[in-house]
C-alpha cells in the first residue's frame, strides 16, 4: 500500500510543479486543482540538524519534495527547557506565517500538534516518531526501527566470533529501546548462544549521550576489552566514537540511521559491518507529496521493512556472504512469520 503511494509521488510532484509554474502570478489556484503547498517547515527537537543521521535524512526528504514543488523549506529547532506551550507557539507562528505543510520531528511535539492542528485546519501537519495524534489534517509517522535493528542484530549474531555482541544507546528512552529490543531479538534468532551487552550513555533529561563521542568511544573500548567483537551504536553523534574504537582495536561496529560507511573516514569505515537504515526521508517526502496532492489520508503511517522505511546497508560488502540469510529474515518479518518485539 505504501509502496504504491511512493510510486505515485513523483507523478504528483511533477503535476504540482507544472501547476505552480502555470499558475504563477495568479493568487487563486483553480478550484479543481489540488490544495497547493506554498511553504514547508520542519520543526526539530532539541538535537536539530547536522546530526549526520535521522534529522538530516528527514531534511533531505523534505528538501527533495520542496525542490520538486519549488517552494521554500524552513527549519526551526526546539530548546531543552521548552514546554508544550512553547512548542505550540512555535508551530502556531509557522502556521500563521503561511507555512502550510509543517513537519514536527520528535514525540515531544505530540501535545502541541494536537492543539495547533485544530486551530489551523487548512494546514497539513506531520509528527515523526509518534502515533498518538488524531486529527483530520495530521500524519503520524512511525518507523519500525525494531525491524531494521533485527536485521543488523542477525548480521551481528552471524558474524560474531566471540558469541558476545554489544549495544550502545545514546539515551535510555523508549525510542532507543526499540532499537535495543530489535537488535537483541535479531542476535538471538541468528545465534541463540550469543550474549548481548547493553549500555546507554546517559539518562533523560540529560541528552548528552547523543553528542558525546568520548563516552561512546570509551564505552566501546570497554566492551571490546571484555569479549564483545561487534557493537551496534544507536548513539547519534556519539556513534563516531564507537566507530573510532572499532577501528582502533580492529573490531566491527554497526552504524545507525544513515549508511555510515559513506560518512566515516577511510580508515574507520572498513570496520563498519553494516548500518541500520532509518529512511526518514521517505516519510517526509511522502507526507509533502500527499499534502500537495488530491488525497490526504490522516492517521498513522508506519514505515518499516515492507515499504522501505527501514533496512540495512550493504556498503563495503562485509555482509555479502550472509545477505541471503538477512533477506530471508526480512521476508519473514514482512510476511509476519517473525514478530519483532519493541521493548527489551
Amino acid at each position: 500500500m505504501h509502496r504504491r503511494r511512493l510510486a505515485r509521488l513523483p507523478l504528483a510532484l511533477a503535476f504540482v510543479a507544472v501547476l505552480s509554474a502555470c499558475g504563477r502570478g495568479t493568487s487563486n489556484p483553480s478550484p479543481a486543482g489540488p490544495p497547493q503547498v506554498h511553504r514547508i517547515a520542519i520543526a526539530y527537537d532539541i538535537s536539530g540538524r547536522g546530526d549526520g543521521g535521522f534529522n538530516d535524512i528527514a531534511y533531505n526528504g523534505a528538501k527533495e519534495a520542496a525542490d520538486a514543488l519549488r517552494v521554500e523549506l524552513k527549519e526551526v529547532t526546539a530548546k531543552l527547557d521548552d514546554t508544550d506551550d512553547d512548542r505550540a507557539e512555535r508551530l502556531r507562528l509557522l502556521a500563521s506565517s503561511g507555512y502550510d505543510a509543517i513537519i514536527a520531528v520528535g514525540f515531544t511535539y505530540a501535545t502541541a500538534i494536537q492543539k495547533v492542528a485544530a486551530e489551523f485546519p487548512k494546514v497539513k501537519f506531520a509528527i515523526v516518531d509518534d502515533a498518538t495524534v488524531t486529527a483530520p489534517n495530521v500524519w503520524d509517522i512511525l518507523f519500525a526501527e525494531h525491524e531494521g535493528s533485527f536485521l543488523v542484530g542477525a548480521a551481528a549474531g552471524l558474524k560474531t566470533k566471540t558469541t558476545t555482541v554489544g549495544f550502545i544507546g545514546a539515551v535510555q528512552i523508549p525510542l532507543l529501546q526499540k532499537f535495543e529490543a530489535g537488535f537483541t531479538a535479531g542476535v538471538r534468532a541468528a545465534n541463540p548462544a550469543a550474549r548481548v551487552q547493553v549500555t546507554y550513555l546517559s539518562q533523560p533529561p540529560d541528552y548528552s549521550g547523543f553528542g558525546d563521542p568520548p563516552h561512546g568511544k570509551e564505552a566501546a573500548l570497554g566492551m571490546y576489552d571484555n569479549g564483545v567483537d561487534i557493537i551496534f551504536a544507536a548513539a547519534g553523534g556519539s556513534g563516531a566514537g564507537v566507530h573510532e574504537a572499532a577501528a582502533q582495536t580492529d573490531h566491527w561496529s554497526i552504524g545507525v540511521d544513515a549508511d555510515e560507511y559513506k560518512l566515516e573516514p577511510v580508515n574507520v569505515r572498513d570496520h563498519i559491518l553494516t548500518s541500520m537504515l532509518k529512511n526518514s526521508n521517505v516519510g517526509t517526502r511522502e507526507f509533502i507529496g500527499e499534502a500537495a496532492g488530491f488525497q490526504f489520508t490522516p492517521g498513522v503511517h508506519t514505515f518499516g521493512l515492507a515499504n522501505g522505511g527501514v533496512g540495512y546497508a550493504t556498503s563495503g560488502g562485509f555482509v555479502d556472504d550472509i545477505k541471503a540469510k538477512l533477506d530471508g529474515y526480512a521476508a519473514d518479518i514482512v510476511a509476519g512469520r517473525i514478530v519483532v518485539p519493541q521493548t527489551p
Partner: peptide
C-alpha cells in the same frame, strides 16, 4: 535525574501510551 529515570518507567510509576515514544 537517575532516580526519575528509574521511577519513570512503565514497570514502576509511569505508563506508555500505545504508539507513543513518551513515558
Amino acid at each position: 535525574s537517575g532516580l526519575i529515570a528509574w521511577l519513570l518507567s512503565p514497570a514502576r510509576l509511569a505508563q506508555q501510551a500505545a504508539g507513543s515514544n513518551n513515558v
